[in-house]
Design a protein around this nucleic acid. Structure first.
Length: 584
RNA sequence: GGGCAUGUAGCUCAGGGGAUAGAGCACCAGAUUCCGGUUCUGGGUGUCGCAGGUUCGAUUCCUGCCAUGCUCGCCA
């Protein structure tokens, strides 16, 4: 393990028992990283809360705990401060020993946990539409969450719940039937751009023309009941979109299993029947509904969740309920994580409520909606092109890569460096795509975020290029000194004498805490903050401590410290879906 | 009107019961015998939207209000 926290916790619990008796064996010692490094490395706040129960003064309680604490192998003698904080400082000897452990551990101190089966449902674009920046957030955040859970040892099913079913197909098929019938019978009769244009026109007709609307609704019902011509047309349209999506996933390095809404079609009638049997279903205005608890419509009446439309068709609530049942029953998962925009929060709350009331969610199954905010332009409004259209994801990625290439070429020219076109291409792609991903992941996902190429590609600040460069620096040391970091590991004799070495090492020890925390709360931005701070601390160390020119045993110790830092950066970035470069 | 989210430094944002609320950018000034300066060191700012409440302690939790965004029965 890398984190000292479990060890410190058990020592504190022993001290609590010794000081106040057996009943305090389970008391949480409230240990955390010190709020300010000047106080130490870790702190315990337990005395402040305990004072009341013990009818004593906080500082006295703290002193009684400290008197019983046995930490000589880990820390300097604990100190009391303020109203009753207990401050701890790790010993340099302990840090050097831990560095040796990390050097020999491929997982860099992060243990695997008891495995669960978990579904991460993310990305989920709609067939016959282009992926846009909104899908980017779901895709990137979902991918990172899946990577982190997998790294901790869980069995993760990465599901792409594509929108390949429903009213949109009725619209599209009805429209194409009159405007471009070949598209319904021949593969690739249209390219995707045309398909998107047809979709827009179909939507327009749907909104304006009542006859068209009812034809479209009938077409949906025909499709959902398996009409062969409709099914064939539908398959052609899906194949075309699927290939387009896949090129984007390949570029982004995203692994996903497609299991779209259509997959659950056979299970939809049973959802209705079972809700009927349970007595939850009510007919209202011709539609089959479950009336929700705690939701109101504009008139203050209970809000229904529509399970079956008045025309007999199903909608996405039905599909999500069927999916939920399948995932729990057939996939046998213990946790389902839905990564979608915050606008769907109430939809998921409603679906979860109905599933709970129907008894479809057994004890111990965790359903979590992971919402995220909008991507906005620098004007604070929804991100658009100059002409007001939605920006296509592939155009956005292309532009990030082009800008990264331009930055690189300018730098090469300044330094009079010659590099091959292949090198330039690889660096531009890695930096460009990495910057886009990191910019998104480094924000707290709950709020909206302002998209800026300039900021995400900046070489300073909390950006992908800054982190990538810290990694490259270590590789530069290796090349310069002819160091084989993969070689025979040292067995002993490491020393950490300088403040900047110790500060860096203390940060390396926190990786496990951070990864565990992100797996729990599903906020990848905390991992970003950790990696940014790690890079800053590495740069301070690099600035103050010569490595190759140092005398032994400093030289070897610093090489190990640099290597473990680089490996931590590489691992951390990989959990964000961002590959590193050896040179840039 | 109901629901949800957000409101923290000039800007972009972290933090989320505990000590003097942080970072990056921008701005100013410095450093560099060096392993790639895409670096490092200094310099200062805040009624943590407003008002109450809970608490030994609130920017953090609760309530109300204000502002902004998203959303509210047959799209997903």
């Amino acid at each position: 393990m890398s984190s000292p926290l479990p060890l410190l916790t058990s020592r504190f619990q022993a001290a609590l028992v010794a000081a106040f008796g057996e009943s305090f064996a389970q008391t949480n010692p409230l240990l955390s990283v010190a709020s300010n490094p000047k106080f130490g490395d870790y702190q315990s706040n337990v005395a402040l809360g305990l004072a009341k129960t013990l009818q004593s003064k906080p500082r006295e309680v703290a002193q009684q705990i400290v008197d019983q604490l046995s930490l000589e192998d880990i820390c300097d003698p604990p100190t009391l401060a303020g109203p009753g904080f207990i401050n701890l400082r790790l010993k340099p000897r302990y840090l050097a020993d831990q560095l040796l452990q990390l050097q020999n551990d491929r997982r860099l101190g992060v243990k695997t946990v008891e495995p669960q089966r978990i579904i991460v449902d993310f990305s989920s674009p709609n067939i016959a539409k282009e992926m846009h920046v909104g899908h980017l957030r779901s895709t990137i955040i979902g991918d990172s969450i899946a990577r982190i859970l997998t790294f901790l040892g869980h069995e993760v099913l990465r599901l792409n719940h594509v929108g390949d079913w429903g009213t949109q197909f009725g619209m599209l098929i009805t429209y194409l039937r009159e405007a471009y019938p070949d598209a319904l019978t021949q593969a690739d009769a249209l390219d995707l751009g045309d398909l998107v244009a047809f979709y827009k026109k179909a939507k327009q007709r749907f909104d304006e023309d009542e006859i068209f609307q009812s034809q479209a609704r009938q077409a949906v019902v025909a499709l959902q009941s398996g009409d062969p011509a409709s099914v064939q047309a539908w398959k052609l349209l899906c194949d075309q979109s699927r290939r387009e999506f896949q090129t984007l996933y390949d570029r982004l390095g995203i692994d996903l299993k497609e299991r779209g809404e259509s997959f659950y079609n056979p299970f939809l009638p049973a959802v209705v029947e079972d809700l009927q049997t349970l007595g939850l279903l009510v007919e209202d205005a011709g539609a089959q509904c479950v009336f929700l608890e705690g939701f109101q419509n504009k008139d203050g009446n209970p809000l229904p969740l529509i399970i079956q439309k008045s025309d007999g068709g199903y909608n996405y609530a039905t599909t999500d309920l069927a999916a939920l049942r399948y995932r729990i029953g057939q996939d046998q998962v213990q946790r389902i994580i839905y990564v979608t925009d915050a606008g769907q929060s109430s939809h998921f709350a409603q679906v979860f409520q109905v599933a709970q009331r129907a008894g479809w969610v057994p004890e111990g199954i965790d359903l979590t909606h992971v919402p995220f905010g909008l991507v906005q332009g620098e004007d604070g409004k929804k991100l658009k092109t100059r002409s007001g259209d939605t920006i296509r994801l592939r155009d956005l990625l292309d532009e990030a890569i082009e800008r990264a290439r331009k930055d690189l070429e300018d730098r090469l020219q300044l330094d009079d460096r010659q590099e091959s076109p292949e090198f330039i291409q690889q660096v531009a792609e890695t930096v460009g795509l990495g910057a886009v991903k990191y910019a998104d992941l480094s924000q707290n996902r709950t709020s909206n975020y302002i998209f800026s190429y300039d900021k995400m590609l900046a070489l300073q600040g909390n950006t992908a290029p800054y982190l990538l460069y810290a990694y490259v620096r270590v590789q530069g040391i290796g090349r310069k000194g002819n160091i084989d970091f993969q070689g025979e590991p040292l067995q002993e004799g490491l020393v950490l004498t300088e403040d900047s070495e110790q500060t860096l090492m203390k940060h390396l020890l926190q990786l496990e805490d951070v990864v565990t925390d992100v797996a729990q709360d599903l906020f990848p931005n905390r991992l970003c903050t950790y990696l940014f701070e790690l890079s800053q601390k590495f740069n301070q160390f690099y600035d103050r401590c010569p490595i190759l020119k140092a005398e032994e045993p400093q030289r070897s110790s610093r090489l190990v410290l640099a290597d473990v830092t680089a490996r931590t950066l590489k691992l951390g970035l990989s959990l964000l879906g961002i590959p590193v470069l050896e040179r840039m």
